[in-house]
């Protein structure tokens, strides 16, 4: 699961809790990865220290990764299979239900 987010993005804050508990629940079966879009390293470190983290987040230099994935804005999440193929794309913040539903789709594929 590849989640594009930013500390200045208000919906990302609510989604962050959903993703952290999802990462803990689905553990080794699903790799969770955050990609931080248009942000400063100091802001990200502070945000993660404050709100917790259960998976790595990476800085997207010059938004190259966001452009490669065709991201329009944050939050935006991609669910990929083991071969790296995008199975589903979710625009906007994920809820617990939508996260579970999308993970089930990917794991069942």
């Amino acid at each position: 699961m590849l989640n594009f987010w930013a500390t200045w993005c208000v919906p990302c804050l609510a989604e962050h809790g959903v993703l952290v508990s999802g990462a803990r629940e689905f553990g080794p079966d699903v790799h969770f990865l955050g990609v931080v879009y248009e942000d400063e390293e100091s802001n990200i470190t502070r945000f993660l220290a404050e709100h917790g983290s259960a998976y790595p987040s990476l800085i997207d230099e010059s938004a190259k990764t966001a452009i490669a994935y065709g991201v329009h804005g944050v939050p935006e999440t991609f669910f990929l299979d083991r071969t790296g193929r995008v199975i589903y794309r979710h625009v906007g913040p994920l809820t617990e239900e939508s996260l579970r539903e999308n993970l089930r789709k990917v794991m069942g594929s």
């Binding site: 803990r24 553990g27 990609v35 990200i44 470190t45 993660l48 220290a49 917790g52 983290s53 259960a54 998976y55 790595p56 987040s57 990476l58 800085i59 997207d60 230099e61 990764t65």
Partner: peptide
């Protein structure tokens, strides 16, 4: 399991 300290990497190093 909580990963602490926070795992934080630069994309430039991890991208490949």
């Amino acid at each position: 399991m909580t990963l602490r300290p926070v795992l934080f990497f630069l994309l430039a190093a991890w991208q490949p």
